[in-house]
Amino acid sequence: MESAMHGSPTSIRLDPDLKKRYDSLAARTGRSRAFYINKALQDSIEEFEYVYNLEQQVLDYRAGKLKTYDLDEVRELLGLEN
């Protein structure tokens, strides 16, 4: 991952209160607002990807695109038959 100082520039619109909070944090810590915004984005991307993947799997399930197993099939596959 590129650092905030050497990464690709982008533009976003921040809620004014959120911008003030980032500015305040940056001033208190000596880091840049971009550092904290980049950190927040890095910390959240895995969750976004995970949630999207789950949502896609639900859609695939509803569309009949996923193989499903009933309880008897699972027991048989795992060798748990009585």
Rank of each mutant, 00 (worst) to 15 (best):
N38Q: 13
L41D: 01
K67P: 02
A40V: 05
E2V: 01
D60A: 11
L59I: 03
V58I: 12
E55K: 08
A27L: 15
E47I: 08
G7Y: 00
E76A: 14
I45G: 00
S32N: 03
G7V: 00
A26Q: 04
Q56R: 15
L71F: 15
E73W: 05
H6Q: 11
D15L: 14
E76M: 09
A27W: 08
E49T: 06
Y61H: 12
Y69G: 00
L54W: 04
E81L: 12
V58M: 10
E47M: 09
Y69V: 02
S24Q: 15
P16Q: 02
E81A: 08
S11A: 12
R13L: 11
G7K: 00
L66E: 09
E47K: 10
V51N: 06
H6L: 06
A34S: 14
L77A: 13
R28T: 09
R31W: 10
F35V: 03
M1F: 05
Y50N: 08
Y61N: 11
E49P: 00
A27N: 08
A27R: 13
D70K: 10
L59A: 13
A26N: 03
Q56A: 09
F48P: 00
D17Y: 07
L78W: 05
E49C: 05
R62N: 11
Y69H: 08
L41W: 02
R62K: 14
N38R: 14
N38F: 06
T10A: 14
S8Q: 14
Y50L: 15
V74G: 00
E2K: 06
Y50A: 12
L66A: 09
M5G: 05
F35L: 03
E2L: 07
L80R: 12
R28C: 03
A40P: 02
Y50W: 13
L54M: 11
R21L: 12
S3Q: 05
Q56I: 07
N38K: 14
L41P: 01
Y50S: 10
R75C: 04
F35D: 05
S44R: 10
R28E: 15
K20V: 01
